[in-house]
């Protein structure tokens, strides 16, 4: 069972992602912002992280940097309403970038690809 950590400041998004991904057979944990994500990291030991960018406190880009300080191999999917950061150097360290969309197909495909499940 692969474990996924969903980091998003919006409760409804966290709920949606959790339910959808659990339905796909993943074990899902959620974090409200970057700091919470960093706390969860050693406890939950996820196989993949979905990371929102615009969050209060520690934003996605800062969080990405902090995670990469220790976790070089952990797959991280940036997940944002903004498309602008897609080709941006600020997210180069992530493994994928998905623009938020009600249709989660793209997200799910990306996750499976990164986890080698395709």
């Amino acid at each position: 069972m692969k474990r996924i950590l969903v980091v998003d400041d919006e409760e409804s998004i966290r709920l949606l992602y959790k339910e959808e991904l659990e339905e796909e057979g993943f074990v899902v944990e959620v974090a409200r912002d970057g700091l919470e994500a960093l706390e969860q990291l050693p406890l939950f030991k996820p196989d993949l992280i979905t990371l929102d960018i615009k969050m209060p406190g520690l934003n996605g880009i800062e969080t990405l940097k902090r995670i990469r300080e220790t976790e070089r191999q952990l797959p991280i999917v940036m997940c944002s309403a903004y498309g602008e950061y897609k080709q941006d150097l600020t997210t180069w360290a992530s493994d994928a970038y998905v623009v938020k969309c009600a249709d989660l197909t793209e997200l799910k495909t990306t996750i499976r690809r990164l986890l080698g499940l395709l």
């Binding site: 919006e10 998004i13 009600a102």
Partner: peptide, 15 residues
């Protein structure tokens, strides 16, 4: 951008 997030929830849960 502000609209996108609620849309994801609305559309996602509707699905």
């Amino acid at each position: 951008h502000e609209i996108r997030n609620p849309l994801v929830s609305i559309g996602g849960f509707a699905r």
